[in-house]
């Protein structure tokens, strides 16, 4: 049986006294790619935030690599270092005086002060390797505010891959990308996941991508409505239950022009 990287049981999270996530349980086997899908307001981002310890939970247990998340939302430092997270958007407005190389370097540094003379060469090599592996080598000296949407997302993956980790959590990381950029990002994510042995949990609205790329799907609408393989969880009947009876999945056809 595969090692379980993340185990969530009976998770309940309230916002303004209202349960946004209620009695949710699931587990992520090592090196799996799991999609969290559901309508807007279903509690997907709240669930992710609670799992990461960013939001208080009212009930339930979260374990990462066997270690429990404390009631105050803290992981042991060694466990915390095994997690990378990419939110939907990062606030880069106007000219932002931070180069890609410096940004990726912050992904390498542990929390707390960094003394420039300690481990500088190891840090430099890790940054270069991360840039190489995410096809960002040529971007190293660019400002993060000068990047296109697709480049910026790849640089964020470099930020995650600069240090070995076990769990990568993505909250609609592909939002705002055009189809080719999204495709390239997903392929890169797939390659890195295989090479790094990452376990991935990604919130997504792109059901076609989920169908193609993910091993497991969690359908959330406050509670876990269904879970399983994409074929099982994304069947028309399940989707109608999740999104409402009027929901018809869009099918893209290439019909010859008459």
């Amino acid at each position: 049986m595969a090692e379980l990287v993340l185990q969530v049981s009976g998770l309940r999270v309230l916002r303004d006294g209202v349960p946004v996530v209620d009695d949710v349980s699931f587990a992520l086997p090592a090196e799996s790619d799991t999609a969290l899908v559901g309508p807007n307001g279903a509690g997907k981002s709240t669930l992710v935030a609670a799992v990461l310890g960013l939001l208080p939970r009212q009930a339930g247990e979260v374990r990462l690599l066997g270690q429990p998340l404390s009631p105050q939302g803290r992981w042991p430092r060694s466990v915390r270092a095994q997690v990378a997270y990419l939110p939907q958007s990062l606030a880069v407005e106007g000219r932002f005086p931070l180069t890609v190389r410096d940004f990726v370097g912050f992904g390498f540094d542990p929390p707390g002060p960094r003394w420039p003379w300690r481990g500088a060469e190891r840090r430099r090599q890790a940054i270069e390797r991360a840039l190489e592996r995410t096809q960002c080598r040529a971007l190293g000296r660019r400002l993060i505010s000068e990047l296109s949407g697709g480049q910026w997302k790849r640089v964020q993956l470099a930020f995650c891959v600069v240090r070995p980790r076990r769990l990568l959590v993505l909250d609609e990381a592909q939002a705002g990308l055009d189809a080719p950029s999204s495709e390239r990002f997903q392929q890169l994510l797939l390659d890195l996941r295989r090479q790094e042995g990452w376990t991935v949990l990604q919130v997504s609205h792109d059901l076609e991508m989920v169908r193609r790329s993910c091993d497991q799907v969690l359908c959330l609408n406050r509670q876990l409505r269904c879970s399983g393989s994409p074929d099982h969880a994304l069947s028309p009947q399940r989707l109608a239950e999740l999104y409402g009876p009027g929901y018809v999945p869009y099918q893209h056809h290439h019909a010859p022009l008459s």
């Binding site: 935030a49 960013l54 915390r80 990419l86 606030a91």
Partner: peptide, 11 residues
Amino acid sequence: ILNDDLAGAFG
């Protein structure tokens, strides 16, 4: 500066 949640997730 970039994102509160990103910062929180990275300790």
